[in-house]
Computed example of a mutant assay.
Amino acid sequence: MTKVDGVGSRLPSKSFESTVIVPLNNRWLMIVYILQHVSECEDREDVKIVGIYSAAELANEAALNFSMVPGFKDFPQGFSVDPYELDRTFWKDGF
């Protein structure tokens, strides 16, 4: 059993490495992991989506590999990995 934030109950799940897939309202809820990099250039933030992964471990491994690549290596603390639910709308109320 896996607890997924926002689902509100414990549901049986299938797991492929650390990908979380649970049944929800007659469909499968799937979580992917987005690897982003943020760097500050003069007066602005530069945000890049580096990749989208099926497992947090894969995203973290990619961040480690990218931390040695020109540009990224200048801002090694700029990486973040965040889980996102597929087929869900974000920023519904604007920003």
Rank of each mutant, 00 (worst) to 15 (best):
F66P: 01
W91V: 01
S39Q: 12
P23I: 01
E17D: 15
L64V: 04
S9D: 11
G71M: 06
D46S: 02
L35C: 04
P76S: 05
M30S: 04
A56W: 00
G51I: 01
W28F: 14
E17A: 10
F16N: 12
I31S: 05
V81S: 01
Y84W: 07
K73A: 13
V47W: 07
R88L: 11
D46M: 06
K92G: 02
P70I: 02
V7E: 05
L58R: 01
G51T: 04
S80P: 08
P23D: 01
F66H: 08
E57Q: 09
L11E: 11
T19N: 10
I31V: 10
N65I: 14
V32P: 03
E45G: 14
L35W: 02
A62M: 12
A62T: 08
Q36H: 09
E61I: 08
R27V: 13
R88G: 02
V50F: 00
A62L: 03
V38F: 09
V69Y: 15
L86K: 04
R88N: 08
F79T: 02
I52L: 10
N60T: 02
P23Q: 01
R88A: 13
V4H: 09
F72P: 08
L64Y: 04
F95G: 06
Y84C: 01
G6Q: 05
E61T: 13
D5H: 13
N65P: 00
L11D: 04
F95I: 10
F72H: 13
G6I: 04
A55V: 09
E42K: 15
C41T: 13
H37W: 15
A62G: 08
F95M: 12
K48I: 13
I21T: 11
F66N: 05
Y53L: 10
V81N: 06
G51D: 02
W91T: 01
E40H: 12
W91P: 00
L29K: 09
T19I: 08
S15M: 08
D93T: 08
L11P: 00
E85Y: 06
I31N: 03
I52P: 00
S18P: 01
V22A: 13
K92V: 10
F66Y: 15
T19D: 03
A56T: 03
M68R: 14
M30A: 09
K14A: 07
L86E: 07
A56Y: 04
V22M: 06
E17R: 14
A59G: 04
T2K: 05
L24K: 08
Y33S: 04
S18G: 14
A63E: 00
P23H: 00
